[in-house]
Design a protein around this nucleic acid. Sequence first.
DNA 1: GGGTATTTGTCCGTATGTATG
DNA 2: TCATACATACGGACAAATACC
Lengths: 468, 468
Amino acid sequence: MLEITPLLDRTSKEPLFVQLLSYIKKQIQIEKIRPGDKLPSKRKLANHLGVSLNTVENAYQQLNAEGYVQSIPREGFFVADIDEDWFNIRPVKRKEMERKTSNKKDMYKYDFNHGKVELDQFPYSVWKRLTLESIDKQQKEVFLNGDPKGEWSLRNEIANYLFQSRGVKCSPAQIVIGAGTQYLLHLLTMMLDPSYVYAMEDPGFHRTRRVLEDKGHLIRPIPLNKNGICIDTLRASDATITYVTPSHQFPTGIIMPIKRRIELLKWANEVNGYIIEDDYDGEFRYKGKPIPSLQGLDNWDRVIYLGTFSKSLIPSIRVSYMILPEHLLGNYENKLSVYKQTVSKLHQDTLQKFMKNGHWETHLNKMRRLYRRKQEVLISSINEYLKDNFEVIGEQSGLHILLSDYRRRSEQNLIQMAKEHSVKVYPTSIYYNAPHKINEHSILIGFGGINIENIHEGVRQLSKAWLD
Amino acid sequence: MLEITPLLDRTSKEPLFVQLLSYIKKQIQIEKIRPGDKLPSKRKLANHLGVSLNTVENAYQQLNAEGYVQSIPREGFFVADIDEDWFNIRPVKRKEMERKTSNKKDMYKYDFNHGKVELDQFPYSVWKRLTLESIDKQQKEVFLNGDPKGEWSLRNEIANYLFQSRGVKCSPAQIVIGAGTQYLLHLLTMMLDPSYVYAMEDPGFHRTRRVLEDKGHLIRPIPLNKNGICIDTLRASDATITYVTPSHQFPTGIIMPIKRRIELLKWANEVNGYIIEDDYDGEFRYKGKPIPSLQGLDNWDRVIYLGTFSKSLIPSIRVSYMILPEHLLGNYENKLSVYKQTVSKLHQDTLQKFMKNGHWETHLNKMRRLYRRKQEVLISSINEYLKDNFEVIGEQSGLHILLSDYRRRSEQNLIQMAKEHSVKVYPTSIYYNAPHKINEHSILIGFGGINIENIHEGVRQLSKAWLD
DNA sequence: GGGTATTTGTCCGTATGTATG
DNA sequence: TCATACATACGGACAAATACC
């Protein structure tokens, strides 16, 4: 006769039937109770344990639901034919994962990170107020699942802004909102025929390279000359889609002149392909006349435009967008409409209000001024300390510049020396298609995230690190 | 069998048991219920009406006290033998309480959408307050780009919850947060060797099929038997990864018993592959306790667990998560750490607070209760109107059931007939690997999004559409 | 082999503690 | 605070299956 004698704790917060349940489960697992065995009748067990019939019943029913036992009316409960060996396998040892201490960034006094942006200027109070309005007024609406392409009203604001500010011509219908440029690229490659061959600027934005490579594309690296991507090399390749950053080439900072832009558009039209224009920091231009976006120049609908609020507003709300040519909208509907929108509707709603009420324009102007000041401080500091030893590259726009060492010391060397003076600067070799082959002497200096007061001293430290 | 089906109004100031009481009284007065009749047992009626046992008990006790019925211990309640002429019998006019939906876009009065969830219950004020706190206290922190896997503090809360509630064993380091299950699946397939061969339940979740197909995988469809995915067929295939929904198979609602779970885990170990466990609605089980997860049974770290807050909390904040086996963490770091987190940090922070302060547990309990009530109303309505013509499948848990037509009329036919009565129901054929080959007679009925007051009438309309 | 007592799962009404609003 | 509702636990009635004489 099967003995079931769990230690029941009536004072425990755990209900009796749960205690009984887990006891029996364990007995089955350690083979004290074996497949085919008949469990004691509910009454007998209840009696034996001094609990109510219903308590046992609850436990038995749950065992039944989980498949451990099977009930045969008026006969009994029988242990199911499960593989009891399973539970005697020693679990793989699990190590306690400790949280990585993120003290690394504190090791540096001056961090010229690119990618990081200015956060102090973010209009917290306005954003907070609009967020509240969104939660309050909309309630249910805001928390429903919305349009997979993003809310129409927000797309409308974006279309207006882009036309005014970047010369982009599009209707809201062409805009697809998504959580980050990487994600949008992923969507884009899915909706395009896989037979397209991708090309990228070399050097170029590494995250884009990763997205495309991860999707199984072998990327044709196209070198740059002083005006950006080499059209001749591109033309000689078998590429049919090319990813470019014409406003401020990453990382070199080259601004693609209008002539090259038109050549590029012609190429796309000839090969019946596409240009992916990533305007990741096109809002920030400090000298010279603004050059219209490739998309705005395009008469053949060959440009897919990518933009983001991560640099200009705030990274953490994760709002980016892409603009599809009209003739690709059918593709989108066919292939991507099952993919749900990835940006929080609350943020979409808040952002739409933010733009509609003019806060966006105000904010953008403010940021432009601020970054220009930072950039000026950076450049003047460099002129003060590093002028004779380093060349500044790509200072016309964006949130970073390159410093090229006349002495041609290695990138890793320069970074290490800076580190010893508590200054963090960044490599450029990783942006090349074949990093190991590159002998790179340029250092990436971002000024988006660093405090304006620290720039001058940071550069002075760099001079001490690199010149002494 | 005596049918007692009052229209209960939970929003009314009148307590439920009072409503029930007066309804039964009236039924006795108009001789719908006659002397000597046995009232339904308290348990049965409670189940039928979707109310607690005690609610019925209160009503019955009051009837007893007033002399309408007599209680015979351990037998039942019997209507007392009173003079039938005692009451002035007047016909009760049944008013058609037609709630007109003013929304033009809602062509359907009754939409049994699966996927939609209850939004009225979302704790707006708490969420709003926590959102404010997050914006206020953290300021810069909250708007910075964070950990690509998601904030540690949130992952910690999720790990605790999953262990307690779903038996999932993991450390926060194994958790990856992302904007939706589809996106996480995309990440997952990227970090796994492309030579893995994917299998899915057939029928199975169509969005998953799309994600995998879009990534170029040819999916092996594995049929189901009554215990879920067929292990033999799976074993005979060349698959090395299989996607399953063991808690509540989509769409059939099968709960995978322990035996099949172990077989599945053994298979994964033998082929050195993985099981993707999508626990999309595992929180919602209506009889007994929730079934522990597959992940918790796994001793060899072959299970990748997927979960989401979209069903249980709110879809629009886009928070889902996956749990990787420890030995895959290296893969993640190598291949995916360049992919930025897609969930808004503000929402992550708010959610973390929400969970930490116990609101999550409260909310989950509330939702469980609500959905159970909805499900009970749905089932009892079906029993009332459709019992003889349709079989209910998968009613143990989740937010949907299947209705299988005994007459084997075509799916499209049934949907069309329902449409003519302004009821929207959904097909199941689309969840099959080769929909055109399927002759499907099951209809998908979701009850997550429909208002509880509309369920009964919606089913009644269905009966008119399908039976007249 | 047939009748009967016993055992069984299932269902029933009841009581108590606790969460919810 | 208080009414309401639910989870848990209790003891007994029923009919079917089984064991026993």
